[in-house]
């Protein structure tokens, strides 16, 4: 994007989404506080705050991690993905409240600096059962914080897509740390095995979802492994109007779009956040990314002005009723004559 930045680009749908998020948090917190004030009235308010915000951020993190794979399985969930960054930042803030309260409560007003105390109170680093689990939470919070502060598009553009994506893939490291933090912390504290079972189920649920998507995508990639100059796409009838078919071409995915009796091929990876262009649609003559609505002209892979994003384009040919794509990409934004099919 090369227009002026805004803090948040609000629209009605986004506001509705955020209202839902606020409602989610309110329902959760009210329920948690209510249940504890009635059934666990002996617990101090600090404990309730620490546990409420800890559990809330744990739940939100699971929600966030479900969205990605869910949209790949069923594109109808794409609307949940959009604005996911607000979910992420909110989750970090909830975790920050949990962390800050825990630090003040357990480490504050003591004989050493509270941050040092997180590392230096419990020294059983060699033990599994006695491990200082708060250290794990500290590092998880650090990673989530780094992700939260770089969630604006400004960072995506100025860090570069690869760096940004690598930074945000660290959510899986943070997730691992959070799971260990919870298992070695509160779950070990409570004698019931039920909580351990629940957290294990959640962890395997998330892992299975990701694995399922990974397997599906590998299958797509295997459809045409040939390193030949031309790769078979298939019959043009396979592609629906204004939609695309994705094929793997020498390690890259290419999206072949059909529109107004013409075919154009572009690289499948959106330059915004790496969204799958081939799962998008042509709207007002532009390929529109399903993730955040970034647009490209099918004929040259360029975003319409004033935007500046560009993707690679590919040559197409028709032989015996079958469409073939050239394995050699043109540089980003190169105009290619669309393939006319009668």
């Amino acid at each position: 994007m090369s227009v002026s930045y805004r803090s948040i680009l609000w629209n009605k749908q986004k506001i509705r989404y955020d209202k839902g998020l606020v409602l989610f948090i309110l329902i959760f917190l009210v329920a948690f506080f209510g249940i504890h004030l009635v059934f666990h009235s002996n617990v101090t308010i600090e404990t309730i705050i620490i546990r409420a915000f800890g559990l809330l951020s744990l739940v939100l993190l699971h929600v966030i991690l479900t969205i990605g794979p869910l949209t790949r399985i069923n594109p109808r969930f794409l609307i949940v993905l959009y604005n996911r960054r607000h979910l992420g930042v909110t989750m970090f803030l909830m975790a920050l409240i949990h962390g800050a309260f825990s630090m003040m409560n357990f480490h504050g007003l003591g004989d050493i600096n509270p941050i040092r105390s997180i590392f230096l109170s419990n020294l059983q680093y060699q033990s599994v059962a006695h491990f200082p689990f708060q250290v794990l939470g500290f590092f998880a919070l650090l990673i989530l914080g780094l992700m939260a502060v770089t969630s604006h598009d400004f960072w995506l553009k100025n860090l570069g897509y690869k760096t940004w994506k690598a930074l945000h893939m660290m959510v899986y490291i943070a997730y691992g740390l959070v799971i260990l933090h919870v298992v070695m912390g509160v779950i070990q504290n409570e004698t019931s095995i039920v909580l351990f079972a629940v957290i294990l189920t959640a962890f395997f649920g998330i892992a299975m979802l990701h694995l399922l998507v990974a397997v599906r995508e590998t299958t797509t990639d295997q459809q045409s492994k040939l390193n030949a100059e031309w790769v078979l796409v298939g019959a043009p009838e396979e592609i629906k109007e204004s939609r695309a078919k994705i094929v793997a071409v020498s390690g890259e995915r290419v999206a072949i779009f059909l529109y107004q009796g013409m075919l154009s091929a572009v690289n499948n990876v959106c330059r915004h956040q790496g969204g799958p262009l081939g799962e998008g649609k042509i709207i007002d003559g532009c390929i529109t990314c399903p993730w955040h609505g970034y647009q490209y002209l099918p004929g040259n892979g360029q975003s319409p002005p004033p935007f500046t994003e560009k993707v690679e384009t590919y040559d197409l040919k028709l032989e015996n009723g079958q469409v073939w794509v050239n394995a050699q990409p043109h540089p980003e934004g190169t105009a290619v004559e669309p393939l006319k099919i009668s």
Binding site: Q13, F24, V63, F77, I79, Y82, T288, G293
Partner: peptide
Amino acid sequence: DFYIGWQDQAGKTSKRRLLDFFLVSILLAL
């Protein structure tokens, strides 16, 4: 069905999915 982020209004199916997702996650959370 196809919703783009900058659109003010999402289609009925998309809205329905968002509501489903919201309801299922709040239910599991509770």
